[in-house]
């Protein structure tokens, strides 16, 4: 670290000798290096975003709106125990929808495939796009709850006044710790701002069949 700083040159009797010029150019070099570091660290802040997403994906911490397609180690249905799965529905951001599960709870054996249907209606006079985000209670249950099919995998575009029934199919992994007897699955629908008005190809593609362009024009 000390390199280049011990000046062996003899002391000048005043200032402004050759030494001063050297220091000025040394300073400019240091300034440039430090500015590069500043720029790199600004980029690093943004690089943390894909890094975080990748890390969550690889470790499975945060795969909440993706299909759980990896095979469980044991496909056997464990009929020796039952787990109660409770369903909850919430709306956020003043989303002008109604949203509720048709059954509020089911009892399943670990390893058994179950399907539940949620009903959602758009009561607004305009098309609205929403995204459902699941959360689990207890938190530990999240990693044992495998969603095979879910409306939360895609953004849902709802035409004005449209009502739709949407399924979620899931399996509770048989390796669920034995002290967990009840899992609460809570969905919250968030409005995806700007989607419905923009009518981007992405939103249209994500919407299931049944939402057609003529329908959304009737208002």
């Amino acid at each position: 670290m000390d390199g280049g700083n011990d000046r062996p040159a003899p002391m000048q009797p005043g200032h402004g000798g050759p030494d001063a010029g050297d220091t000025a150019s040394d300073n400019r070099v240091t300034l440039r290096k430090l500015l590069v570091v500043t720029g790199l660290m600004f980029g690093f802040g943004f690089a943390l975003v894909p890094f975080y997403e990748k890390l969550c994906d690889v470790t499975g911490i945060n795969r909440i709106v993706k299909r759980d397609d990896h095979k469980p180690a044991n496909t056997q249905v464990d009929t020796s125990r039952s787990v109660t799965v409770e369903f909850d529905a919430n709306l956020r951001s003043n989303l002008p929808w109604t949203f509720k599960p048709l059954e509020t709870s089911v009892r399943v054996h670990p390893g058994e495939i179950a399907t539940v249907v949620y009903e959602v209606s758009n009561v607004a006079g305009r098309a609205v796009t929403g995204q459902a985000i699941p959360s689990y209670g207890p938190m530990l249950a999240a990693q044992f709850f495998r969603k095979i099919e879910c409306f939360c995998f895609d953004k849902q575009e709802m035409a004005a006044g449209e009502t739709r029934q949407m399924p979620i199919a899931f399996v509770v992994d048989p390796s669920l710790p034995s002290d967990v007897n009840t899992i609460t699955l809570s969905f919250t629908f968030f409005e995806v701002a700007g989607r419905a008005q923009a009518g981007t190809p992405l939103a249209t593609a994500a919407a299931p069949a049944g939402v057609t362009a003529p329908q959304s024009k009737i208002q």
């Binding site: 000390d2 300034l31 430090l34 500015l35």
Partner: peptide
């Protein structure tokens, strides 16, 4: 803060009196 820090690092690394080693 960043400009102040660049100034401080540069001053300390390049402008110490002769004989004033880092340690």
């Amino acid at each position: 803060s960043i400009m102040g820090s660049i100034n401080i690092v540069t001053t300390i690394l390049n402008m110490r009196a002769p004989g004033m080693t880092l340690m």
